[in-house]
Design a protein around this nucleic acid. Structure first.
Lengths: 343, 343
DNA sequence: GCTGGCACTCATGCTCAGCGAGTGCCAAGT
DNA sequence: ACTTGGCACTCGCTGAGCATGAGTGCCAGC
């Protein structure tokens, strides 16, 4: 009983099951793949695969269905990411080129990804934590209120309003503000957000004692904005794919929808995905730590410009999923969105 | 056959059906409401109601179910918005008080509304069109690129990057920029967005011919930002309620999810809702112009501070819905969120 | 105009048998 | 030591047949 053929059988089962969504039997398998052996042999192999926990039969006298472990083996050893056609690639590029701003890039990306994969697409907003400060601006609002605006190189903007004891409407106040603006920008612009927070820390001491509390308030609000996890926003699209006919689990759609609403869960999914060494990470069924997502798989990867990987994106769908194609789409979209963001 | 009693029967049918989600028959009706008449009488009334198109029987020998028209009559004439208890009111207020910024207010509101009504909650972002300009700021990005930042009194920020032929890194460039900043702010701050766009129109002429093209570019980008429909963003929560057991239509969830993803559709729903004179508008089943939402009802209203009604919010659920309570929740949440935003 | 009574209609749920896909195992072949 | 054809067996699925009962429509009487 050759190990090799047994794996070929597993591969065939996964492929057929993904396509037909029906348990696949020995006979049906022979018709669709020329394995060069008889049905009985295939049956023996299947029995062995079942023994190993790679496939399972929903009930006696039904075909076999891959288990999570079976999909895992398939993804790891039996498939390769399906390359995309030049036509597809250029369609992706073109669609993303049309974006007018960051929000639009994100919106287009999720829509694109969900329609490519016909699955739920999830995308994390470009994370501030690895981005850098482009500019910091102050906008007086009345005599004693000051709006602090932080502009990040990804195009994201954070703002905070603080109360101050200084009167900023006087010429003197304006001058102070100009000085603060200059110094703060000098020490923060170009730095990564985390580093910027650190280097602002000691800044108040460089000012006249009279101005220090103003500067301290400003620095405090900036630190707040710098570590603010707002960028950990997540956008999704293609939820209706969950209800698509042909999908296995329109029964248990509820828990999945619930999980999708808890953005923290999604962020964690995308986050842990990024920890893996592979370019595209796949998390199958029960590998997934969240109840409600136990019969779904997550295919995710990180994106971002060059060495500056900033966030994650991916898709979520039933474990019965066309992994090679899905992985290809996720990878391609991540590549192109990274390219766009680099500009 | 008294008209009055017939309507009482309709009311009873709606109430029972909403509660049990099963077609209600004459007998069951008598058990749960003391109408003071016999089953046969109720049957006669039911026949009449069916004749009028207010109720329908899924099949012979099943109970009756309200039609869209039946619900409509119920909402218009047979029910009153159920007042909320002080405890509920204060819970709502308290939950919304905790919000830290505009995004948080919106996020909390939808979550609150969906959990109160156990339905899908939809909320439009506070609209810019009725808001006013608080400040306009320019941030040079390199020698020939300029970021224009528009800050609106709702706390929302819009930014645009433009290319210019001026060299802004010189002292002279900075001076020009300062002048432009001052003039533009002088003429736009405090104005409603639409008015601001108009008053900026003629501004370039007030500048030296050499600076006019810069000013024109700035004005153009501002006009773009001012009319930008970004604020027409919509946020939803509680999608998983669609899959809740006990809901009628987990069958046709797909089209509904699709409609929910098309934010344009939702905006239109909220928009038309605001046209009605009633405080809370109800759109039942087929009254709804969108395919896919033909078996859902939308309960919506507008919110905003004082006379400055800025946007819409509401919930979407099956036509078989507890209208009085839902309407009460929508109204209460709208009231409180308006109050919060007024601050 | 209300009521009780009665015949009628169907959806629902049940059992039961037949079908067929699919399996497991065995004995024979290579 | 594998592979193969054969064969008995399992069991989900389907559809027919039947009983049940909720619910109706109608009618005659109050």
């Amino acid at each position: 009983m050759s190990e090799e053929r047994r794996l070929a059988v597993l591969r065939a089962i996964v492929q057929d099951y993904v396509e037909t969504s029906e348990p696949v039997g020995s006979k049906a398998l022979l018709e669709r793949h020329h394995l060069g052996v008889s049905a009985a042999t295939v049956r023996n192999d299947m029995a062995a695969l079942e023994e190993e926990g790679l496939i399972a039969a929903p009930h006696t006298s039904a075909g076999r269905v891959p288990t999570d472990a079976g999909y895992r083996l398939f993804v790891d050893r039996l498939s390769s990411v399906k390359p995309m056609s030049p036509a597809e690639r250029s369609a992706i590029a073109q669609f993303l080129e049309g974006a007018v701003d960051l929000d639009d890039v994100v919106a287009r990306t999720v829509r694109l990804l969900s329609s490519l994969t016909r699955q739920v697409a999830v995308m994390q907003y470009p994370s501030l934590t690895r981005s850098s400060v482009r500019h910091i601006e102050f906008v007086p609002m009345g005599a004693t209120r000051l709006m602090v605006v932080l502009i990040v190189n990804t195009g994201r903007v954070e703002q905070r309003v603080i109360e101050t004891t200084h009167d900023l409407s006087t010429t003197e106040g304006e001058a102070t503000l100009g000085l603060v603006r200059a110094k703060i920008n000098a020490s923060a612009v170009g730095q990564r957000l985390v580093d910027a927070a650190a280097s602002l820390e000691s800044l108040p001491e460089e000012f006249e004692p009279a101005d220090r509390d103003l500067v301290r308030a400003v620095v405090r609000s900036l630190e707040d904005a710098l570590v603010e996890e707002r960028e950990e926003r997540v956008v999704l699209a293609g939820t209706s794919n969950l209800a698509r006919v042909g999908t296995d689990f329109p029964l248990s759609i509820g828990p999945v929808l619930e999980a999708l609403e808890q953005h923290v869960v999604l962020l964690k999914l995308l986050g842990t995905a990024r920890e893996t060494s592979d370019a595209v990470s796949v998390r199958i069924g029960h590998e997934n730590p969240f109840a409600g997502l136990q019969s779904t798989s997550v295919v995710a990867t990180e994106y971002g410009s060059g060495s500056d990987l900033v966030a994650g994106l991916g898709v979520l769908g039933p474990t019965r999923m066309d992994y090679p194609t899905t992985m290809a789409s996720v990878r391609a979209v991540a590549t192109y969105v990274s390219r766009i963001l680099a500009q």
